[in-house]
Design a protein around this nucleic acid. Structure first.
Lengths: 235, 235
DNA sequence: GAGTGGTCTAGACCACAAA
DNA sequence: TTGTGGTCTAGACCACTCC
């Protein structure tokens, strides 16, 4: 764990971890700003900065005179979620499995999308729904941040599912584009070469440390992304 | 302009307007924080808050010892925004215009994507960047909610720009998918039929009342969508 | 009425990149 | 070296809202 963070980031991270790990449950009251200020030995403005960020991220809700509360998760934003494809498919009523195509370990020099120096694991595989190819996935995992991944084959369990269950993330970034399936991807997914596909790239960090990068390709007619939202408060 | 805003929002808005209107161009230096503090008669922390927000929004870039500069526009737009395509293109430095293809008025029976009963206006057009087709758009506007739209031809002004400037929205929903351009869209956009395109559908409501529905199609290589959900970037 | 979050102030120190 | 942005402090006042 890198402990070189700003104080407000640490406060934010602590609360975020509590929420993600279930210590803090929806509806729970978070200590008042002045209490947290005492607890961390800092000014209230610093606590406020952390809570403002959490509030904008939708993790907490702040109410005057009442305090700040862990938000009830919104029924929204597939785009904003880090979806576990297996769960999505299972929720749809289809059987799911992940087929690993390749697994290799190498030492990065900051040139890959993860941008880390040090040991990296690269995985390639295909998600299947009801025994049919559903999506292609290429993934990098930062072994410095997730050393346990070295012991796993990922032959049976999709890396995304495993990561979601074992490694909390604090920040993520999605990039969505439309691409044309090349010959290899088309063959893997059982579609015609040239089919329009949704390409989703996602970077995930935990407290500034890169955790994983993933590129997923879905045939345009098998997956789409829905995001529901309200305007962000201009605080 | 409502002048009931917080000071940091006013500073942010002034700079944002300058950028969107072209008074501030990419690469231009913004006054130093302490200069803005003097100019607005406030503390530097307040200026800093405004600039931090602008930086997070990608409108400016801040460099130590050098100052803050108007950012060179990314060819991206956040999924979380309701982007005004004209502003996006203008911010990129390209000229922009909207070409109306069709305009008709009819009475809905709840069967269209807007799902309203009553008068609806349907618009079809193409967005151009630097005199080249950039994206296709089909739009429905609920005239019961936005009666002023009946008086407008939308021949010059893109309906999206007009709506953003005149009708506040409270909820929106995006649906993103990859599609293959059909012959008509391909011809309108000047691309090969079969090119992968990003298709964006958006429903917008104001307090539960449908305002508008829009379907936009962009060639996959001309537009992509980025969603970043860092609680708050610390830099 | 009392106490919360929301905003702001007028300082301060530090790291760091540009001059 | 210098001055910028980045962060933080220890106050303050206000609006709002719950008690």
């Amino acid at each position: 764990m890198a402990e070189e963070m700003t104080l407000d980031a640490r406060i934010r991270g602590d609360i975020e971890n509590g929420i993600r790990q279930g210590t803090l449950k929806p509806g729970d009251r978070i200590p008042f700003e002045h209490e947290l200020a005492v607890q961390y030995g800092c000014a209230r403005a610093t606590v406020s900065k952390a809570l403002t960020a959490l509030s904008r991220a939708g993790l907490i809700e702040r109410r005057r005179r009442a305090g700040s509360f862990v938000a009830y998760p919104h029924v929204q934003s597939a785009v904003l979620d880090v979806p576990d494809i297996g769960s999505v498919i299972a929720a749809r009523g289809d059987s799911y499995h992940y087929a690993l195509l390749a697994r290799e370990e190498f030492s990065g020099h900051g040139e890959q999308p993860l941008g880390v120096k040090g040991p990296v694991i690269r995985l390639e595989g295909v998600h299947h729904a009801a025994s049919h190819p559903f999506g292609y996935e290429e993934r990098l995992i930062n072994l410095s941040a997730v050393p346990e991944a070295r012991e796993l084959s990922f032959a049976d369990e999709a890396p995304g599912s495993w990561l979601l269950g074992h490694v909390p993330w604090s920040d993520a970034r999605h990039r969505i584009a439309a691409v044309t399936a090349d010959a290899r991807i088309a063959r893997l997914l059982g579609i015609a070469s040239g089919t329009a596909c949704l390409q989703l790239e996602r970077w995930t960090w935990k407290m500034g440390t890169p955790i994983t990068w993933v590129l997923q390709v879905f045939p345009g007619d098998r997956y789409d992304l829905v995001a529901e939202f309200t305007p962000q408060s201009t605080g």
